[in-house]
């Protein structure tokens, strides 16, 4: 290979590298966002088609692979169903009592969410962020920072970027995600942080607070527009930080983020 050819390649590479570093340094978001929005709008029908097609193929594959486990899972679900039915009956009683007491104390009714249902049409292909794309955007009333849930009360993340017909949802497991949470059993408050797409950690819990394995973690509703009481997951492990000033708890999310089809954006 001639030296001239080698040198010209290096020169081309270095020229583009300098431009790329400048782009990274300056990060021209305001200039680049319209371009990104245009490409996302063009890609939207393709993304939706590919994603839904691959979900159905993957679902069929999973079904065939899990036939052996179906009987066991079925028995476990029947048992859980019976327990939940009993719990529902008890909760209905408490709900009626709650409504009655609220009327007597003249309290405002408990908030009902204005939900916008959306299909997931894309996921993060790299390991540094943790996000999904949905098929609803600003034309459907979606705005940045709106919380996103599944199954009515399980929080999965927040809207972070929007185009007219799609939106990016930053998941709780993203390293930039921070949510105020509380241990539902012991009322210990903390901050939920994402761990580079690998999981979530409840951090900054005072040493005086109590955290137990198996406790449920929910949103505390403090300091943001995320409503109180949205389920996050269960505590798997409790430990102290390196400096022993705070406690941390590894939280197992209630839902597997890679297996979502439909999510709901809380608009109010």
């Amino acid at each position: 290979m001639s030296k001239k050819y080698f040198t010209s390649n290096i020169i081309k590479f270095l020229a583009v590298a300098v431009i790329c570093f400048l782009l990274i340094f300056l990060s021209p978001r305001n200039l680049f966002d319209p371009v990104r929005g245009l490409f996302l709008e063009i890609a939207y029908p393709f993304q939706k088609t590919f994603y839904l097609l691959s979900r159905s193929v993957a679902g069929t594959g999973e079904f065939l692979g899990s036939i052996g486990d179906l009987k066991k899972e079925n028995e476990s679900l029947l048992k859980e169903n019976n327990e939940l039915s009993a719990e529902i009956a008890q909760l209905n009683d408490e709900k009626n009592e709650n409504i009655s007491l609220r009327e007597q104390l003249k309290l405002a009714p408990k908030q009902k969410f204005n939900l916008e249902a959306a299909f997931v049409i894309g996921q993060d292909p790299q390991r540094l962020g943790s996000w999904v794309m949905i098929d609803k955007g600003s034309s459907d009333g979606i705005r940045e920072e709106m919380p996103v849930i599944v199954y009515e009360s399980i929080l999965i993340g927040k809207v972070s970027e929007i185009t007219p017909h799609s939106a990016k949802i930053t998941l709780l497991s993203d390293s930039t995600s921070v949510v105020n949470v509380v241990d539902n059993e012991t009322a210990s408050k903390g901050v939920l942080k994402g761990e580079y797409g690998l999981g979530v950690l409840m951090d900054m819990v005072s040493q005086q607070e109590v955290l137990n394995n198996g406790d449920t973690v929910v949103t505390s509703g403090l300091g943001s527009n995320i409503p109180r009481g949205l389920l996050i997951g269960k505590i798997q492990e409790v430990r102290s930080t390196g400096d022993k000033l705070f406690q941390q708890a590894v939280v197992v999310p209630r839902i597997k983020y890679s297996k979502m089809d439909v999510v709901f954006v809380i608009k109010n």
Binding site: A43, S54, G122, Q123, D124, P125
Partner: peptide
């Protein structure tokens, strides 16, 4: 688009082929 919307349903997150 295939990498973002098709492959994530067949591979675990962070193991999606480039």
């Amino acid at each position: 688009i295939m990498q973002v919307s098709l492959l994530p349903n067949f591979f675990a997150a962070q193991r999606i082929p480039d």
